[in-house]
């Protein structure tokens, strides 16, 4: 896809501007590029689906959409070996600690995609007594993919957005990924007390 075809270009540009302001060494910058190239092109998902979106994710892997083209097909079942968790489906109160634990078990660098209305905001079940109104209440989310369920094309779009986001990250000298978690807890103090 061409650069202009993406939405949210301002967001990426903002990230790049921030990085430029911080300034980096040329060699370190090149290393960063290499590492980010590796990371962004080798996103291994954790198989995690709770409802309908998971079936669409299976379609994503199947022959017509074939996520293997991008190198996403190495779906790992063990969170230790996966790179990102794509939350597909509703997260309810009973599942919330499990999801949180899965997130903790992922090895850094780790990313979260909230896929589908339920994961983004609770979707059609928002008013229920035991549904989490969006996974961003318990996890720092990198990309949101709306839809109920999102079409496989939308999922690709979301994944490509994640790739773009990773490409402007900094490995050396920049913000540590673990600070992301700290920031998240600063915003949600009630969650930290529970862990």
């Amino acid at each position: 896809m061409k650069y202009d075809d993406f939405n949210d270009n301002e967001y990426i540009e903002k990230l790049v501007a921030e990085l430029k302001d911080a300034g980096t060494n040329v060699i370190v910058g090149k290393f960063d590029e290499l590492i980010n190239w590796g990371r962004s092109n080798s996103l291994w998902p954790l198989c995690f689906g709770t409802s309908c979106c998971a079936i669409e994710f299976m379609s994503l892997g199947a022959a017509r959409y074939d996520m293997a083209r991008f190198g996403f097909e190495v779906a790992r079942n063990s969170p230790r070996q996966a790179d990102y968790i794509m939350v597909q489906g509703t997260i309810v109160h009973r599942m919330a600690p499990v999801l949180r634990r899965l997130y903790e078990q992922l090895a850094e660098p780790k990313y979260v995609i909230a896929c589908g209305g339920c994961a983004v905001s609770g979707g059609p079940f928002k008013n229920s007594y035991c549904v989490l109104p969006g996974v961003d209440k318990i996890l720092p989310v990198d990309v949101y993919i709306p839809g109920c369920p999102p079409r496989p094309e939308a999922m690709f779009y979301g994944l490509m957005q994640l790739q773009r986001k990773i490409k402007v990250e900094k490995f050396f000298g920049g913000a540590n990924r673990q600070e992301k978690t700290k920031e998240f807890f600063a915003e949600h103090p009630e969650m930290e007390n529970q862990i």
Partner: peptide, 29 residues
């Protein structure tokens, strides 16, 4: 219960045409 979404309770506060969206999402197949 790891995906118990309380559909039956929600139905009780929705009009009949609104409740129609739930069966699609229970057994989505």
């Amino acid at each position: 219960g790891y995906i118990h979404r309380g559909i039956e309770k929600m139905c009780e506060s929705m009009s009949y045409p609104q409740t129609l969206m739930f069966p699609d999402r229970m057994d989505y197949m």
